[in-house]
């Protein structure tokens, strides 16, 4: 999956800064599931139309019957059926409205979250005084590319990338790629856990450890 994207990404992303690296991750989720979601919504809309059509049909029938024959039990029952259909249409519409609102909120939340994470990364890179080339390399490293791949993507020698990555680690005060990634995931989880009510369990579980050795910065 990632392999397929690389050749044309290599040419377009070559000279770009770390910020441009956001693009693939932004476009990726727009491809599969939402499309299915949208088709589902269109089918639901068509069904709602069918329901409305039937309601119009039955109400027309009842009104016609009342005009021609007057009200009897049969027509009164038909009127009740038509009324129930009409109420059903309104409630199906309200339900549809809720579904649309929910999916829009979810989309907005995801884009805000991914945008915020990207902002966090570039802000952190700036605070470490990374050069544009180092930011680029660091971002590729965060995305999971190995040194040979990064070298190919950037059109530079593996040795250069290794040196740049070493400078990134030095500036960030970490000693490995995992620790570099941990700088960001730590921030992400620290914000998320209190909301989930999980912090207490985590800190109590690690409590014994952190007492003997101070947590990494």
């Amino acid at each position: 999956m990632i392999e397929d994207d690389r050749p044309h990404d290599a040419t377009t992303q070559n000279a770009r800064t770390a910020h441009a690296g956001r693009r693939p991750s932004e476009t990726a989720p727009a491809a599969g599931a939402p499309w299915r979601e949208r088709r589902r919504a269109v089918v639901l809309a068509a069904l709602l139309f069918l329901q409305t059509f039937c309601t119009v049909f039955f109400i027309g029938d009842v009104v016609g019957d009342v005009i021609v024959e007057g009200v009897d039990i049969h027509i009164a029952f038909e009127a009740a059926v038509a009324g129930a259909l009409a109420v059903g249409v309104v409630f199906a519409g309200l339900e549809m409205r809720r579904t649309i609102d929910r999916s829009r909120r979810a989309e907005a939340a995801v884009s805000v979250a991914s945008g915020a994470f990207a902002d966090l990364i570039s802000a952190q890179f700036r605070s470490w005084n990374l050069t544009p080339a180092e930011s680029d390399v660091a971002l590729f490293a965060l995305k999971g590319f190995d040194i040979a791949e990064i070298a190919e993507l950037r059109g530079s020698a593996p040795g250069t990338v290794r040196a740049q990555l070493a400078r990134v680690y030095a500036k960030a005060g970490v000693s490995s790629r995992t620790q570099l990634l941990a700088v960001f995931t730590d921030e992400l989880l620290a914000g998320a856990l209190p909301g989930l009510g999980m912090r207490s369990t985590v800190s109590s579980a690690t409590g014994g450890q952190s007492a003997s050795q101070p947590p990494p910065p």
Partner: peptide, 19 residues
């Protein structure tokens, strides 16, 4: 014609309860 009426009714309803 009746379909058009139903479509109009649905859209007008949507004008009150829609997004």
């Amino acid at each position: 014609g009746y379909s058009a009426l139903a479509l109009l009714v649905l859209r007008l309803l949507w004008g009150v309860i829609g997004p």
